[in-house]
């Protein structure tokens, strides 16, 4: 058995799905709107952009108006400007392998996460999709393997930062969650195998010390209001 902190797994950086629309995270201090009041220099500012040139433009704009960008979401071309993202201290929240569904994602590569990480920038495995979000451990494993295939050697535990501590850093809550350390919230997952294997599943999940999921105990498996009385309620999904 291996235990890893899921950290801010539940506190997803909820970026806006449409290109070019800055979105503030629901969990972080309120992000500023572009038009109107001057952005708060201390606030987390999260933007969804795909292309390298768009991100570079956004960085230039943030300097002109005096606010700081915390993270780019989607950032399909982050690997092209990983050095800039490192220098600016901006995290990139990335799909492992999404590409080609629209022109902005045309240059997606499977090595985006490991390339950003290898450049010394902050990489985050993400998905804004109801399916992709379920298996971020697998998304991370895929990206990690793709990097290794090209000779980018990253250890398993380093890659785990992409779904734990780096997320917490991007949200400004790394003092509370994102790693297994004395004093932090007890957000812990017990896996039934190596979490980077396709065959592994979460067996027990504690959030802030409370056991909220146990694969062996139906009383620790939530059923939503919507599903009550419907076909499939309480089934092993």
């Amino acid at each position: 058995m291996r235990a890893f902190s899921i950290g801010a797994l539940a506190l997803l950086l909820a970026g806006c799905a449409t290109t070019g629309q800055p979105a503030s995270s629901g969990a972080a201090p309120a992000g500023p709107a572009l038009a109107g009041s001057k952005p708060d220099a201390e606030g987390a500012f999260v933007s969804t952009y795909y292309r390298a040139d768009e991100m570079a433009n956004m960085i230039a704009m943030s300097k002109e108006f005096g606010y700081r960008i915390t993270a780019f979401h989607h950032a399909v071309e982050a690997y092209k400007i990983a050095d800039i993202l490192k220098d600016e201290g901006i995290c990139s929240a990335l799909w492992a392998d999404w590409y080609g569904f629209k022109m902005e994602s045309y240059d997606g590569i499977q090595e985006n996460l490991p390339f950003v990480h290898a450049a010394g920038a902050c990489a985050i495995t993400h998905s804004d999709d109801a399916d992709g979000i379920q298996r971020l451990n697998q998304e991370t494993a895929k990206a990690l393997a793709s990097g290794r295939r090209l000779g980018v050697q990253i250890r398993d535990e380093e890659a785990w930062t992409w779904i734990a501590i780096n997320r917490a850093r991007a949200l400004g809550i790394a003092d509370k969650v994102g790693s297994l350390e004395p004093g932090k919230q007890a957000d812990v997952v017990l896996w039934n195998g190596n979490p980077l294997s396709v065959y592994s599943r979460a067996e027990k999940v504690w959030v802030d010390g409370a056991l909220l999921y146990d694969v062996h105990d139906p009383t620790r498996q939530p059923v939503s209001d919507f599903e009550l009385g419907q076909p499939g309620a309480g089934d092993r999904k």
């Binding site: 080609g100 999709d129 697998q138 065959y199 092993r236």
Partner: peptide, 25 residues
Amino acid sequence: PSFQPRNLPHHAGNLVAQARLPGGV
């Protein structure tokens, strides 16, 4: 984009994992 044909082996692997869960087939 969540389920690309190139990832079919992973989909298959997930169904092996499903068999190892209590209540899962």
